[in-house]
Design a binder for these strands. Structure first.
Lengths: 119, 119
DNA sequence: TCTTGCTATATCCACTATAGTTATTACCAC
DNA sequence: GTGGTAATAACTATAGTGGATATAGCAAGA
């Protein structure tokens, strides 16, 4: 279905942006935690410095893929500096579309590179 | 840390670069044809200008993912300006690794965004 | 035939977006 | 105080993209 949301316009997602959306896919999180999650999940392969991380968060927020939200109630003991983010419906849709796009690429790659033809 | 081939160092592949490798996955092709193939395969969604196309080809060549090769014998009627390219083994491996990487991302995205948790 | 114009093919230059680096500030727990 | 947590800002590096340009070949028509 071509949902007229314009989600396509955000594709392809940059590596870090996609990773951030993935991290937020689990639910609300604050910036620092997002960075840690990415680092852990990628086994240190990706280690976003705060500079690039918050830059990317800002871009995503400005484009409406994520929003800044209140701290969760079970975090009142937490650090007041924390800025929490969650995916917007648009962000979720962009993710879904990006996944579709990638799946298409994978299918083509499989049929071509893994069963190479003579040149 | 690094894989034997160092193919990981080329990841993530940019959209256009990956598309070019996909196009060459079918076998040798010249630049212009690569552009056309991409445009057709993506139903016009991607319409690489010659500028970005040849720049990307140059980058891929400089990094050893593709090489410039002779024109095929059945092309002697073709335009002499044509520059033909083929995947190198490294290029093929980079493709394979990129596919693995993307599959990993997809798996994470599926489990998170398509079964969203309460934030 | 000459000219106009379109497709094919490629190069060069400049702009933009993204990411990385580094430094600074501030809070919190030990 | 020290060390980890959390965020901001200024700067740099560079990959990627896009636009303008050039040129050859071919087709259509004056």
């Amino acid at each position: 279905m071509s949902t007229p949301s314009g989600a396509e316009a955000f594709l392809p997602l940059a590596e870090l942006s996609f990773q951030i959306l993935l991290a937020l896919g689990r639910g609300r999180a604050h910036g620092y935690a997002v960075g840690k999650e990415i680092e852990e999940r990628t086994d240190g392969r990706l280690n976003p410095t705060t500079g690039s991380l918050y830059q990317a968060l800002r871009r995503l927020r400005e484009r409406g893929l994520i929003v800044e939200t209140e701290a969760p109630s079970d975090d009142d003991a937490g650090d007041a500096r924390r800025r929490y983010f969650t995916l917007t419906p648009l962000g979720r849709e962009v993710m879904a579309r990006e996944v579709s796009r990638l799946e298409g690429l994978i299918a083509v790659a499989r049929e071509r590179a893994l069963a190479p033809k003579r040149a």
